[in-house]
């Protein structure tokens, strides 16, 4: 269960609306079921009361929405940010993607968000209701007579199991208790892939990426992908493509995208969350993050506004291309 409640968030939002600090609130809108929340703009206490939710399924990262929504807002926009969201927030500010003056950010604590597919894997399909009860989720389904109790920690999203920080790196105001940067195991899976032979690794990615339907959800949800017109969408770019012509091209799309966000990806995990085909895209980005850390020293994108990412910052200590090349040989 989340430590901060829906009621506390509504009270905070209503207060900021009524005292004129903000004119709109970007929050989680109630769905058809207990798990399908939609990012929603609220303008009044009444709207919040009717449609705002906060529960263990509020994983969506709102930072990217600030690019389009803050520009349009009349006054300031209130946004609730979980710790991981604040890294994307800073990274977008570093890249001048929204006007900080138009946003009022309230940092909220997060106990980790649940992954509905993991819930269904335990409870079975046909969810009728899901309610948080302490450290558990109580699930009723269309097929089981008795409610099923599942420990929330057993159904956390991958990115939350490997949470890198419970600390907010940006906010105007903080609710609840501040957390710490965590020592996560998020690179373990990358290390496992690195330890494979080149052929095994190729087979791994072949299996994963062959499922891609090229819907572009990964790109469209990514706070690091904010080009106004992606080259792949631009009929004049010469490389526009709406669907994978073959598997080779498919892999290239993902590798190009991973390069493009290298050093800017905060490891927010949205890409993997939204993929309809459950492709572990975060592993590609984490490989880049791990390499950057190893080659240039620890660097966390979004930790500070205006930090110089290693890939765009020349120093005389930078490693030589040859060293990378040699390492590649060892990995082959």
């Amino acid at each position: 269960m989340q430590k901060i409640t829906r009621e506390q968030l509504i009270a905070k939002a209503s207060e900021l609306l009524s005292n004129g600090t903000v004119s709109q609130v970007l929050g989680w809108g109630k769905g058809e079921f207990d798990y399908d929340v939609t990012p929603t703009l609220f303008s009044s206490a009444e709207e919040l009361e009717n449609g705002f939710v906060f529960n263990d399924f509020c994983g969506a990262n709102f930072s990217k929405y600030l690019v389009s929504k803050a520009a349009k807002a009349d006054g300031k926009l209130l946004v609730f940010l979980k710790p991981c969201d604040t890294y994307s927030f800073n990274q977008l500010l570093t890249e001048h993607r929204f006007d900080r003056e138009k946003v009022y950010a309230v940092g909220i604590p997060c106990e980790g968000m649940a992954d509905i597919s993991k819930v269904k894997a335990i409870s079975g399909d046909g969810i009728a209701s899901i309610n948080a009860d302490g450290d558990n989720l109580v699930v009723t389904t269309l097929y089981e007579d008795a409610p099923i109790t599942i420990a929330t920690k057993d159904v956390l999203a991958e990115r939350c199991i490997n949470c890198k920080s419970k600390k907010h790196v940006a906010y105007d105001e903080l609710m609840g208790e501040e957390g710490e940067v965590l020592a996560s195991n998020r690179f373990d899976e990358v290390a496992r892939l690195e330890a494979m032979t080149a052929d095994e690794r190729f087979a791994f990615w072949q299996n994963e990426l062959s499922r891609c339907i090229r819907c572009n959800a990964c790109r469209d949800a990514c706070p690091a992908c904010t080009c106004e017109k992606c080259v792949f969408d631009n009929p004049n770019s010469g490389v526009e493509n709406k669907s994978p012509a073959n598997e080779f091209e498919e892999k290239l799309f993902h590798i190009i995208r991973a390069y493009h966000v290298a050093g800017r990806c905060t490891d927010c995990g949205e890409c993997s969350r939204v993929c309809p085909q459950n492709i572990p895209l975060h592993l590609l980005n984490r490989k880049f993050i791990k390499d950057i850390n190893e080659f240039y020293g620890e660097y966390q994108a979004g930790e500070e506004v205006d930090s110089r990412a290693p890939l765009v910052n020349y120093t005389t200590e930078d490693l030589e291309p040859g060293e990378v090349f040699d390492r590649g040989d060892n990995n082959a």
Binding site: T38, P39, T40, L41, Y65, I213, R214, C215, N216, A217, R219, D220, A221, V274, P276
Partner: peptide
């Protein structure tokens, strides 16, 4: 307006 407000334009809905 409200219904489309958060749509990412990803096309997942149309492809599935």
């Amino acid at each position: 307006d409200e219904l489309s407000s958060a749509c990412l334009g990803c096309g997942t809905c149309t492809f599935v």
